[in-house]
Structures are given as structure tokens and as C-alpha cells.
Design a protein around this nucleic acid. Structure first.
Length: 326
DNA sequence: AACCGCTTCAACCGCCCAGTA
DNA sequence: CTACTGGGCGGTTGAAGCGGT
């Protein structure tokens, strides 16, 4: 048996708020405050709304000093930086952007910023042969390479675990690669991956990001990997091989394992090196701990210092975006 | 003008956590 | 210690708007 609903669903109004309801809620809160009890608030305010709905409406729309409209470049940068550090902790990200709500930022990220960074190809411009439908299981990862030297973002071609629906750039061969960070999630079960795809490096054939990573641990858990590269990077997918660039870096890979079926490999050659941190059992990092081991105060500091070099980690877990290019 | 497909974003859903009885 | 409750949060949905044909 599930938990009791927070309100009588049959007697509450749903859907868009009318200007009258807005005025009623705003008026009540301005006069009486929230009283620390959102569940009781609608009744007191004479609204036929769920308490949670009132809270959301107030926080996201009616609250004073809410900023609507275009996000500035600075805000973009802050969102990207924090997202790279702490993931989709929208409330924490929102706390760094006065006047912005977590919902706003979440929507902005999902609808605009993500596309801005990844250069999404409109459906109408896709050629049928470019589209490959992957396995029906959720594909949790997308991968992004961030080149600090020219402020450009690049994604490598999609891997089987990297099914971000986007136009994957293979152009980082002509970047200086002075500061490239890569991250991806590996899923060990082949059944979840669909067709085997992997990146490999020429010469010594170091395989990574979905292949058999070089493991430093005896049990193959791949907790730490250190690789020095100055090599061409090739993308391989069965019979299709594509050279995707030249990388020159000395990387230290750390694993962030959050459960048995998902392993996160991070790579960075940035100046402010970082180490992997284990998520807690609930899949979240501690309130003041970030994946990079930064506290919230440190994140604030990070915002001001990462303009020169960032470790970017992008991943998503959206089951319905299982289209990829190869 | 009508239709269609895409995008946007407000709002909802359901889970998790902390506080409390 | 356990059960319950409300608040908070991230993920998802769907109506509205918009542009193209």
C-alpha cells in the first residue's frame, strides 16, 4: 500500500493557475507567510489547490525577485560548471543564481542549453541512415569533451552507452586539446549496451569509454586508470571505423561507481585535479559533498576559478532518447 | 485557413529525507 | 525503534504557442 496522498485529489483543482488564484495566494502569503505548513495553507487561503501545488506556484512564479527571461552567458557558464560538478542538483544550482528557480534552470538546461552545447541536429535534417535505434534499456550516458583553449564543446561519436541524441562532433582533431576532460558511464552488462562499440587508442591500443578499460585493481573494478597519450583516437563500431581526433594528454581516470550496474569513468588533465567519490546508496552525494569532493562553498569558489579550465561531466539518463549516430 | 511537427515551460508525480510523535 | 507526515527535489508530462508547408 502506498502512502496517503498529500491532499484530497478529488477536491483540488489542477492545471494552470488563474490570475485570481495567483492573487489570492500571493495576498495570503504576503499577509500571513507560509506558516511553515504548505498542506494547510490552501485551505486557510481559500484555495482549492494542493499544498504542494501552492508551494510550487509560489516558489517558481509568485515569489518576489523572480527573474524570468533570457539567461545570460555568465549564467550559462555557472550552470554548466555546476552541472559538471554536481549533476542535476537543480536546487543547488539555482541557489547560485539569484532570482532563478530550479524549475527554470532545469527547463532551460533541457530545452536550450543542452542543445546549445551539443549542437543538436533537427529531426528534419537527419538522414535515415544516420539513425540507429539502440537497445530498449535506458541509456544513461552522454559524453562531452570540453576544450578549454577555445571554449568549445565537443562530443565524441556516440558509443553504445552514449546515446545522446545530438550531432556528435568529430572535429576535435584540430583543437589544441590543451585541456580536455572526458567522462562517460560504463555499463558492464553487455545486454544493456546493445552493439559493442568502443574507443581505442592507436599504438598501444588503450581502450576506454565502453571498452575494456585498463584497470589498476586486481579484481577488475577499475578504480583508477592512468594513461599518457599523444595518440590518434579512433572510434570503432563493428565494421565502421572513424578517426575522431588526436589527443595529447596525461590523464588520470577515476571511477565513480554508484551501483553494481553502472560505473562512471572520469578523466581529467586539468590543473585542479580531482578524484572520484563514491555516491551514497541513495545515489546522491552528501549535502555538502560533490562528486569532485567540493563543498558548496568551494563550488562557489570553483565558479570563479574554472573559467580557465573545467572538468566537464555530462551524462543523462533519458530512456526515450535512444537514437544515436554512427 | 488548416494542418502538422516541434519547442517551451508550467505544473504534476512520485520518491526521498528529516523531523516528530 | 518504528511509523507517519510534510517539505523538498528531480523527472516527466502535456497544453499552448509557433513556424513551416
Amino acid at each position: 500500500m502506498g502512502r496517503a496522498p498529500c491532499c484530497d485529489k478529488a477536491n483540488v483543482k489542477k492545471g494552470p493557475w488563474s490570475p485570481e488564484e495567483d492573487a489570492q495566494l500571493k495576498d495570503y502569503i504576503q499577509k500571513n507567510g507560509t506558516g511553515g505548513n504548505w498542506i494547510a495553507l490552501p485551505q486557510k487561503a481559500g484555495l482549492r489547490r494542493c499544498g504542494k501545488s501552492c508551494r510550487l506556484r509560489w516558489l517558481n512564479y509568485l515569489r518576489p525577485n523572480i527573474k524570468h527571461g533570457e539567461f545570460s552567458d555568465d549564467e550559462d557558464r555557472i550552470i554548466c560548471t555546476l552541472f559538471s560538478s554536481i549533476g542535476s542538483r537543480w536546487s543547488i544550482i539555482a541557489a547560485q543564481l539569484p532570482g532563478r528557480t530550479d524549475n527554470d534552470i532545469k527547463n532551460y538546461w533541457n530545452t536550450k542549453l543542452k542543445k546549445k552545447l551539443f549542437g543538436r541536429v533537427p529531426h528534419s535534417q537527419r538522414k535515415p541512415h544516420q539513425i540507429h535505434h539502440a537497445s530498449p534499456s535506458p541509456s544513461p550516458a552522454s559524453t562531452l569533451l570540453y576544450n578549454c583553449s577555445n571554449n568549445a564543446y565537443h562530443t565524441p561519436p556516440a558509443t553504445s552507452f552514449s546515446c545522446f541524441e545530438a550531432s556528435y562532433s568529430s572535429s576535435f582533431s584540430n583543437t589544441s586539446a590543451s585541456c580536455i576532460s572526458a567522462a562517460s558511464i560504463l555499463q558492464p552488462q553487455e545486454s544493456l549496451l546493445g552493439p559493442i562499440q568502443h574507443y581505442q587508442l592507436h599504438d598501444n591500443g588503450v581502450q576506454m569509454l565502453g571498452g575494456e578499460a585498463s584497470c589498476s585493481s586486481s579484481d577488475g573494478s577499475c578504480s583508477n586508470i592512468q594513461i599518457s597519450h599523444n595518440k590518434e583516437l579512433e572510434y570503432s563500431n563493428g565494421d565502421h571505423h572513424q578517426q575522431i581526433g588526436m589527443q595529447s594528454y596525461n590523464s588520470f581516470y577515476s571511477e565513480v561507481a554508484d551501483d553494481e550496474s553502472q560505473k562512471l569513468i572520469m578523466a581529467s588533465n586539468c590543473d585542479h585535479g580531482w578524484s572520484g567519490h563514491q555516491k551514497s546508496s541513495n545515489g546522491l552525494w552528501g549535502e555538502t559533498e560533490t562528486p569532485l569532493g567540493y563543498g558548496i562553498e568551494e563550488i562557489k569558489q570553483l565558479i570563479t576559478t574554472t573559467s580557465s579550465c573545467n572538468s566537464f561531466l555530462f551524462y543523462e539518463n533519458k530512456a526515450d532518447e535512444k537514437v544515436m549516430y554512427y
